[in-house]
């Protein structure tokens, strides 16, 4: 896939999202790959918040807003309907936030993967419940402050390894991505679209409001997350795990933390411990998206 070959058609454009929102970028890039022949399911999350202002909508494809816990159920239901009518050419895609995936929607995601219908489940991970005011979620990393874990306290649980959870379902295709690597992400969406079964893509989407950095650095922050080893770009196809992008330069995790305000209260010793954890996971060749 090359930049020049990507569709110029904007099917998600000019939403009410914050300036520099990477979650909005993730939706835009996904719809560039899938084109007009797709149906979107959006539960309660940032995307539904920024796109559903009657009578305007940034979506140029059919979309439905679903209950928070029911993304997976809606996806398999719509997909089952299309299968019954012989329209399996239509892609069914769900955009769920990290809370809607790892906390509230996890049973429905699990059931949907078990059901085996064809859909793409995209979890854009901005590492907290951002649209309701930055509350902690199951995917908030260790050490981050949120409004429910305020400084000088901080999140003391580590991030759930969603990829390992979906891999335990024997999913045909699952991947992690980051909006700072758009071609890598779009390739994964295209690959997921070819699979006749449930697929899951976990995309890291830096959030200027919640993480505390200037909007113009949204792409840089994602790149720093990958280069520091905080986030890995991998894909899992039929049980085989493959790293799709190895960063050419390594950064220290301290550099990544210094770029945002949510890790401000960590002492150098705590950052060192997180760095050791990341190094240990990398040295052990731990298969899944290693997070501190």
């Amino acid at each position: 896939m090359k930049l020049k070959e990507i569709s110029r058609e904007e099917l998600f454009r000019s939403s009410y999202g914050c300036a520099g929102c990477a979650a909005v970028l993730a939706v835009r890039l996904t719809l560039k790959v899938l084109g007009r022949n797709c149906v979107c399911v959006v539960p309660a999350n940032c995307i539904s918040t920024v796109s559903c202002y009657y009578p305007q909508t940034p979506f140029f494809v059919p979309m439905t807003v679903m209950a928070f816990a029911a993304t997976g159920a809606a996806l398999s239901g719509i997909s089952a309907g299309f299968r019954r009518r012989g329209r399996e050419d239509i892609s069914v895609v769900g955009f769920s936030g990290d809370g809607g995936t790892a906390d509230i929607g996890i049973q429905s995601l699990s059931g949907a993967i078990d059901g085996g219908y064809k859909f793409i489940y995209i979890c854009y991970d901005n590492e907290a419940y951002m649209n309701t005011g930055i509350q902690r979620s199951g995917l908030t990393p260790y050490g981050a402050t949120t409004t429910t874990t305020p400084a000088p306290c901080f999140e003391t649980e580590s991030k759930k390894d969603m990829l390992r959870i979906v891999a335990a379902h024997d999913i045909p295709y699952a991947a992690t991505a980051c909006t700072s690597y758009p071609l890598d992400f779009m390739q994964k969406v295209a690959r997921a679209n070819r699979v006749n079964g449930p697929t899951y893509i976990h995309v890291l989407a830096p959030c200027p409001t919640g993480w505390g950095f200037a909007p113009d650095r949204a792409i840089e922050l994602g790149r720093m997350a990958v280069e520091s080893g905080f986030w890995r770009l991998v894909e899992l196809e039929n049980g085989k795990l493959r790293t799709t992008h190895k960063p050419s330069r390594r950064r220290s995790v301290a550099e990544y933390f210094a770029a945002q305000t949510r890790f401000r209260q960590l002492s150098p010793e705590q950052i060192e411990e997180i760095q050791r954890n990341i190094d240990r996971r990398q040295a052990a060749g731990q298969a899944f998206s290693a997070t501190g």
Binding site: Y16, R36, P55, F59, P62
Partner: peptide
Amino acid sequence: IPGPVSRAGNIPT
């Protein structure tokens, strides 16, 4: 498949 269901004819913001 038919386009977005919006009475205003899908005005972008």
